[in-house]
Amino acid sequence: MNNVMASRKVRKIHPKKFALWAGLVSIVMMFTALTSAYIVRRAGGAWYEFDLPDMFIWSTIAIILSSTALHISYKSYVGEQHKKFKRLLFLGCFLGLAFIVFQYLGWQDLLAQDITINRNPSSSFLYLITGLHVLHVVGGIGALGIVVIYARRKKHQVVTESRKLRLELVFTYWHFVDILWIYLFIFFLVQQ
């Protein structure tokens, strides 16, 4: 009996990590609703077609690189390579900011072609979905900002379980918004 309990304990996910995943489920539901509404409305006709701005390709590259950098950064933190951890953390943050800038430039491109938010539901959906996504990215940047503040402290070089957990929570969220964007980007491409 005791052995069973012990092995269960090991498998058990940390409550905070579980809570994060539950939260991510709710975000998934929100974007599922929006993209399903998109499909339903598009099938209804009177749908203005336009090309996605090229900037979205750059933003996709930026956020994938950002996730990669943060992933290696986490590995370095666990491996106690503090310098490498910090450098990659800053790089990841920078690329995250770059993503937001590219999204903004993408919207500017669309506006230059007179594809405004109220032109047609097709453009309304694009602005709404990408806008809500960027809001989630901004939240991620905020969390990364706190990580950066902590990373600059000397004390932080000591790797502890709770610090590892906190990093993991923030980075998991970041990878999530990354994957969410890839899904949305492919979704828009397929729908075109």
């Binding site: 539950a22 489920v25 709710s26 539901m29 929100m30 599922t32 609703a33 929006l34 709404l128 809500l132």
Partner: peptide, 17 residues
């Protein structure tokens, strides 16, 4: 609640837009 409330949240965002 976790699965259904986000859906209406997106509906409310669309109404607000």
């Amino acid at each position: 609640g976790l699965l259904s409330f986000p859906v209406i949240a997106s509906g409310f965002f669309m109404v607000l837009f």
